[in-house]
Design a protein around this nucleic acid. Structure first.
Lengths: 106, 106
DNA sequence: TCGATAGTTCTATACTGATCGAACGATGGC
DNA sequence: GCCATCGTTCGATCAGTATAGAACTATCGA
């Protein structure tokens, strides 16, 4: 189960990244990772079934958004911020920093 | 057929914007509009059937990305750049400016 | 070795969305 | 008025994907 396949930055596809971020669950995960730096899958499941959460993490990984490492029995996930910033400058910042506007109690 | 319903900036949803941009056809349209400022649907169809193109423009309109005005028998489309920049600062720039990287002949 | 824990994979289901032909609606020129 | 043009809407089809239960795998601790 160890050693996930993480795509190299040169194969990142903007369309794929945007699709991964267009799902509310995944957008929430990415934002929480942006705040907290690293977290296990369980800490980000929001009460959802494990299979659903696992699916979302796979999409995030395959888009290049998230890096997953095994730490004992848990999987720790982190944003691939540096690589994403190099590949798509300003994108992650623009998406993570609009939180107050787009999820605030209007 | 005149007078499309364009959402107000306060109802823009980041998820919806990202989903609209995650389609290659629509991403291409948005990038071309960013370069050329305003264009008719026909000028952006890329040889696709009219019904398909119309569908994509509808998605772009409903996400708040594009403003469509009637000019005689044609429809002129433009990016709602100012409103988008106010609502999601830096987002459009990040997406439009990665063109060379993501569609270049690697 | 046994059980508990954390996540993945498998499978099925239901929903969403992309595509496109055909019919329709609006506008302008003759 | 009539026709051509531009684009929308309708309807059908097909692919992709979100969801979730169940079985499975890997790791750790007792």
């Amino acid at each position: 189960m160890r050693a996930f396949s993480h795509p190299g930055p040169e194969t990142f596809l903007l369309e794929r990244v945007l699709h991964a971020l267009s799902d509310p669950v995944r957008l929430g995960i990415v934002r929480q990772l942006a705040r907290e730096g690293e977290a296990s899958c369980g800490a980000l499941d929001g009460g959802r079934p494990k299979s659903s959460v696992s699916h979302h993490f796979r999409v995030l990984r395959e888009a290049g958004l998230v890096w997953t490492r095994s730490d004992g029995v848990t999987h720790m996930n982190a944003l691939r911020r540096a690589e994403l910033d190099r590949r798509f400058p300003g994108l992650l910042a623009a998406i993570v920093d609009t939180e107050a506007l787009s999820s605030g109690p209007c």
